[in-house]
Write a protein that binds this DNA or RNA. Structure first.
Lengths: 251, 251
DNA sequence: ATCGGGTTGTAAACGCCGTTAACTCTCCGT
DNA sequence: ACGGAGAGTTAACGGCGTTTACAACCCGAT
């Protein structure tokens, strides 16, 4: 099953170089400039050769998105370890600031990953034989999951403020509960042992609300869509973090 | 100066029909499908003829964006009047819910207008002769201005909660102050008389913060980018509005 | 009545693009 | 030595934005 590693090495190298060049074009000139012919030109080959590696331009772009997500996750994780295990609030801040810094430094990648209409899942083709198996959502690394899986690691292992108990809207509880299970499962898989009933529903709800604010601020700043010219949005961002800190401290 | 109106009428009709078709393509198949040749085909002309009306595809798209903004503003204003002049909180709610409803009903238009990297203003080419005149920012109708100009009308004329006094970050005060002046100017122009020192800096700051949340929620919902599958985001949205109401009631 | 210019359209072309099909060539296992 | 798989090529199709040159038309001025 793994006897092909030798012959396959140049192949994955080429695959990586294609994505590297695709990403360079994305960063420097935006999504529309990521063109099969431009990539091929830079690699010294012709465009149809790329079809040996990717099904289509859209397929290639999706792989690039995955790469970007991995990089972002790595960067946020690095920020997190740099701040030290014990400093919980500092960890949350580091992830938030890291996300903003990354988005501002990589606006095209942010736009591609976080601000493109995501195709809704294709309605789960019904299985004629009732084979509704486990259907574990595959990683789907994307999205705020990057952020929240890191943030939840911090929040869950530090017995947080318990910001609210059951004032979370009833219709959201099922979704939140499912998401909590996913988070717990992810954390356990990473070898993190959890306190007894860590991650209350209220905590997950709190994280979701804060993700809305974090994403809103970053997207508005990247897109330059504040309702007026903000000469420096950092104080606004920092005041949001301060407010977060206040809410957490009021355990 | 206006003697050409008669002869120009067919021209603006054609201009409108072009944008109408462009918008149909945008709504039905997304931005990339808005193609000069497709538009021309539908109008029974050839693509180069469109250059008699718009400088380029990019120029046409910008005009479409302006149209979309006008429609959105009109829709929100209609929502606002439907709720009645006296019901302040209802007015704010109506605008917020209207914005969400519009965004969910017009995802492609929302993406184009609210989630595309806006070209930063070109650094204000320096005038050699120090002719730094008034430089009143032209309407630039776009963005949250649509929302905020409506919301501020409500907030300013109803002597709001005074949600905070001078706890707004120092570095934001200049920007906020300038924006407040713009808002006041706009409102006065609309014939709305303002209380003495309406629209405190804290009120504008509050509106800005809430715009971040409103935009964040709507964008996440349109893009399907919540960190987990949310079967119905409306309760989350409504809880945000409830929180807003609480903050306002605590005058 | 005719001229001339502005307005609105056309056809042809250029150089891009994604994608497909048919083909070479090279390597490697049998 | 053969044959197939892998990786690349060339040629082509249709579509795209855009430019250029040219035709038709309206309309006011001579």
């Amino acid at each position: 099953m793994t006897e092909a590693t030798r012959r396959d090495r140049p192949r994955v190298d080429t695959e990586r170089e294609i994505r590297r060049e695709a990403r360079r074009l994305l960063v420097e000139q935006g999504r529309e400039a990521v063109t099969l012919r431009a990539i091929a030109r830079h690699l010294g080959i012709t465009a149809p050769a790329l079809y040996r590696y990717y099904d289509s331009r859209e397929d290639l772009l999706q792989r690039v998105i995955d790469d970007v997500c991995l990089d972002l996750a790595a960067e946020l994780t690095a920020d997190l370890v740099a701040v030290g295990e014990e400093d919980m609030l500092g960890g949350v801040f580091a992830v938030c600031r890291g996300f903003r810094r990354w988005a501002l430094a990589h606006p095209q990648e942010f736009t591609l990953v976080f601000a493109s209409p995501a195709e809704q899942e294709p309605e789960a083709a019904p299985c004629a034989f009732g084979g509704a198996g486990k259907l574990v959502q595959p990683a789907k690394d994307q999205f705020g999951r990057i952020f929240l899986s890191v943030a939840s690691k911090v929040l869950a292992t530090h017995q947080l403020p318990a910001p609210s108990d059951e004032e979370v809207p009833e219709q959201l509880r099922a979704d939140l509960s499912g998401f909590r299970d996913t988070l717990v499962h992810t954390l356990v898989q990473q070898g993190i042992e959890l306190p007894d009933q860590a991650l209350s529903l209220g905590t997950v709800y709190f994280m979701l609300q804060f993700w809305v604010r974090l994403y809103g601020h970053v997207a508005l700043e990247v897109f330059g869509r504040f309702p007026f010219a903000v000469s420096n949005a950092e104080p606004l961002f920092e005041s949001m973090l301060t407010e977060l800190a206040g809410a957490i401290q009021a355990a």
